[in-house]
Design a binder for these strands. Structure first.
Lengths: 148, 148
DNA sequence: ATAATTTATATCGTTCACGATGCAAATATA
DNA sequence: TATATTTGCATCGTGAACGATATAAATTAT
C-alpha cells in the first residue's frame, strides 16, 4: 500500500513537473513578444503549413477545439494570426499567419537552441534523446489509442 | 530554420502532451471521488506524511503556494483535508487528512497499477522505466537549478 | 426534397498554473 | 526595544485545458 503511492515512484508526476518547468523555461524567451507557450506551439504548426482550419491545428496539437479557439482569438487580437471563414466549407475557420506572425520566426530563431541546451545534461545528450523521444512517443501513442 | 522548429523535433511538446494525456487517463479513476489529478498529488503527499504546512506541500510538488492554497480550500470544502493555523508559527496553515481523506487511500488502491499498466508498451517496460525516470529527473534537476 | 445525422466551431463553467501584489507574523538588525 | 526585512499564506487577474453543451453548415438517409 505504501510503495506504489510514493510520489517518487510516479511517472505521471515526473512528466507533469518536467512539462511545467520546461514551459517556464520558455516563458522569458516568449513573453517579450507577447507569446505564451501554447501560442508558440500554434506558431510551430502554422510555420510548417500556413492557412489551416481550426480543427487541423487542434488535431496536430492533440488539443480540443474549445481550447484552441480562444487561444487563436487572443493571437488574432495580437495581430499574429488572421481568421477567416472557409470558402468551400462555411463552417471552417481558416487560420493564417499575418506578416507579424511570419516575422516572429526570425525573431525566435534562437529559442529552440536555447531551450534545448538548458535541458542537456549527464543523461540527456544528443545520443540519448532519440531513445527518450521514442519512449515518450510510445507512451503518447498508447494513451491515445486508449482514449479512442 | 526549418528543422529546428519542427513540432516533431520538440522535447517540450512530447512532455506537454504526455503529461496532459496521462492526466486524462487519471480522470475517470478519480472523478468518481470528486478528485482532480492535482488534488490526487496532494493526497500522495499527505499519505506519506500527514499534517504539513502549505509551504511543505507546495515545495514537494514544486508548485507555488498561490496554486496550492485554492486547491486545498476546495479539498477542505469536500471534507478531504482539514486546515488549521499552526501553533508555533501563526502564519502557517497546517493541512491534515480527514477520515475521508485517509479512507480514500483504500478506495484508490488500484489507481497506480491501473495507470501504470495503461502506459506500459514496447519501449516502456519495468526494465526501461528506471532509465526514463533518470532522464526525467535529470531534466527536472537541470531546470530547477536554472530557475534559482 | 425533407428529415436525420454528422461535423466544425464556439460558448460556458470549473479547475489549475502562475506572475504580481498584499498582509500579517516572525525574525533580524540597528 | 524600535525598525527593517523576511517569511507564509492569501488575493487578484490572465491564460490555458477540458467536460458539457449549443449552433449552424454540410452530409447522409429516407
Amino acid at each position: 500500500m505504501e510503495e506504489k503511492f510514493r510520489l517518487d515512484n510516479q511517472l505521471c508526476f515526473r512528466l507533469y513537473t518536467a512539462s511545467r518547468l520546461i514551459t517556464q523555461a520558455y516563458h522569458p524567451l516568449l513573453s517579450g513578444y507577447g507569446l505564451t507557450y501554447p501560442q508558440y506551439l500554434v506558431l510551430l504548426v502554422l510555420w510548417e503549413k500556413d492557412e489551416q482550419p481550426v480543427n487541423d491545428i487542434a488535431r496536430r496539437l492533440l488539443l480540443e477545439t474549445n481550447t484552441v479557439t480562444p487561444l487563436l482569438k487572443r493571437m488574432e487580437a495580437e495581430g499574429i494570426v488572421s481568421r477567416r471563414q472557409g470558402r468551400k466549407d462555411a463552417r471552417q475557420m481558416i487560420v493564417g499567419l499575418t506578416k507579424k506572425g511570419r516575422q516572429l520566426q526570425q525573431a525566435l530563431a534562437d529559442v529552440p537552441e536555447t531551450v534545448g541546451s538548458s535541458v542537456l545534461c549527464e543523461s540527456v545528450t544528443p545520443e540519448t534523446v532519440p531513445g527518450l523521444f521514442g519512449m515518450l512517443d510510445d507512451i503518447i501513442a498508447r494513451l491515445l489509442e486508449k482514449r479512442a
